[in-house]
Simulated assay, not measured.
Amino acid sequence: MDRDGYKLYFSNPNKCKNCPLLKKCTKSENHTKIITRHIWQENLDIVDDLRFIDTIKNIYSMISQTIERRFADTKEQHGMRWTKYTGIQKVTMETTLIFACMNLKKLIFRRKIDKLKMI
């Protein structure tokens, strides 16, 4: 495995030397074909196949209405386009406070909805 997370597979040059498809397979002078494959490639293939299932398509289409919406609200309504402070500790403190406030707003809104459902 190399530093970028790829496994290298080498063919056996003794077997490949007499193969009739050698010229189509590799142009290597030592008759070795090298295949590189990322260590997570199997998982990426599974995820890629899931994209075409109808239920997954419907769920994926809702991302823009749920998750992306939260990021947009955070940027626009809570001033998260940039920070007011410098330094990792101050920025962490500011963002933690902002997200705590956002969670409180969400809880209050849900409670209001629950009370309306009871009426």
Rank of each mutant, 00 (worst) to 15 (best):
H78R: 09
Y60R: 15
W82I: 02
I88N: 00
S61W: 02
S11C: 06
W82F: 13
R69N: 15
V91T: 13
R37H: 03
L97Q: 00
C101F: 07
F52W: 02
F71I: 13
C19R: 00
N43F: 10
T95R: 10
I34L: 11
Q41A: 13
I56P: 08
V47L: 15
H31M: 03
C25R: 06
T36V: 02
K57D: 00
K23M: 10
I98W: 04
Y60W: 02
Q77C: 14
I53Q: 10
T26R: 03
C19M: 01
T92S: 11
N43P: 01
I35H: 09
D73Y: 08
E76H: 09
K33M: 10
T55I: 11
K24Q: 14
D73M: 09
I67P: 00
T86M: 03
T26N: 03
I56L: 12
I39A: 05
Q65A: 14
I88C: 04
T86V: 04
R69M: 11
F99P: 03
E68F: 05
I67F: 04
F71T: 03
I63G: 08
I34P: 00
N43Y: 12
T66I: 12
D45K: 06
I34T: 15
D49F: 02
I34C: 13
G79Y: 07
E29P: 00
S64C: 14
K90R: 15
C16H: 01
C101L: 13
L22P: 02
H78L: 07
K84G: 02
D48N: 14
S11M: 03
I35F: 12
W82S: 10
D48L: 06
I53V: 13
K75A: 13
N58F: 01
I39L: 11
K90E: 08
T26G: 04
E29L: 12
R81M: 09
N30D: 15
T55K: 07
I35T: 15
I98M: 02
N14M: 02
C16V: 05
T32C: 09
I67N: 06
N12M: 01
W40Q: 11
K33Y: 11
A100M: 08
L50M: 15
Y85P: 03
K33V: 14
M93H: 08
K33P: 05
E94L: 05
T36Q: 14
S11R: 03
N43W: 10
Q65C: 13
D54H: 07
G87I: 00
G87T: 00
K15Q: 12
K24E: 15
I59Y: 10
V47N: 06
L44F: 11
S28I: 06
A100V: 04
K15I: 10
K27D: 01
S64F: 04
T74V: 01
L22F: 08
M80N: 00
P13V: 03
D73R: 08
D73A: 03
T66F: 10
Q89K: 11
H78F: 15
H31A: 09
N30E: 14
T74N: 13
K57E: 05
K84Y: 07
L50S: 04
M62K: 14
I53R: 05
E76L: 11
E42P: 01
R81P: 05
K15S: 12
C16D: 05
K33A: 09
L22C: 05
D49H: 07
M93I: 05
T96L: 06
I34D: 04
T95D: 02
T95L: 15
T32S: 00
I34Q: 11
G79T: 04
Q41S: 12
N18K: 11
L21M: 14
S64R: 15
T92L: 04
T32A: 05
K33C: 13
